[in-house]
Simulated scan of single mutants.
Amino acid sequence: MKQFTTGDLNKQVGDVTDAASREPVVLTRHNKPRFVLMSYDHYERMRTGGDPRRAYHISEMPDEHVALFGEALDRLARGEGYDDEA
């Protein structure tokens, strides 16, 4: 995630908003994160749950993900899945 200072926002509003249109950016003040600037579309996806991606701690991972993860690890341990995938 890119970072800009609040001073950068005042001086380079175009650069900062261009970056925020691609991904959320952190605005810092006195070297501390203060704000996050993002596109409205990104905000709406977060607010409404429209983005299905989610990170899980291993202890909270749904059973179907545990099974898929285990299968993938087994394939890699057997040396499969490196050169045979397009």
Rank of each mutant, 00 (worst) to 15 (best):
M46A: 07
N10S: 10
N31D: 12
R75F: 13
M38T: 00
V16S: 00
M1F: 11
V13E: 11
P62H: 01
H30C: 04
F69A: 05
K11A: 10
H30W: 09
E64W: 07
V66F: 06
Y56F: 15
R47N: 13
G7K: 10
M1G: 13
R54P: 03
E23A: 11
Y43V: 05
D63R: 07
H30F: 08
Y56I: 05
F4H: 04
D63W: 06
E23C: 03
Y43A: 11
R47A: 14
T48C: 00
T48L: 06
Y56C: 04
N31M: 06
D51M: 02
T6P: 03
F4D: 07
A67R: 15
D74W: 14
R34N: 06
R47Y: 14
T6F: 12
M38G: 00
G7D: 09
F69K: 15
G49L: 04
P24H: 02
G70N: 15
P62K: 02
A72Q: 10
R34P: 03
T28R: 06
F4I: 01
G49M: 00
M38N: 03
A19W: 07
Y43E: 04
L68I: 06
G49Q: 03
Q3D: 03
L68C: 05
Y43Q: 05
T17M: 09
M46I: 06
L27E: 01
A20Y: 03
H57E: 09
G50W: 09
G7C: 08
L68H: 02
V36I: 11
H42N: 08
G7L: 08
E71M: 15
E60P: 00
E64S: 11
Y40V: 09
R53F: 11
G7I: 09
Y40D: 05
R22K: 15
D18A: 14
R22Q: 11
L37W: 02
M61R: 05
R34A: 06
P24W: 08
A20S: 02
E23D: 08
Y43I: 03
A72C: 13
A67G: 02
I58S: 07
V66D: 02
Q12E: 12
M46L: 13
T6V: 14
L73C: 02
R53L: 14
D74E: 15
Y43F: 12
R45I: 00
A67N: 10
G50R: 13
E44S: 12
L37I: 01
P33R: 07
P33I: 09
L68T: 02
Y56R: 13
R75K: 15
P62L: 00
K32I: 02
R34E: 08
Y40L: 08
D51C: 04
P24A: 01
M38L: 11
Q12Y: 07
G50N: 13
V66Q: 15
H65K: 15
F4G: 05
K11F: 06
E60N: 11
H57Y: 09
K11T: 10
V25L: 08
L68M: 15
E60M: 06
V13R: 13
E71V: 08
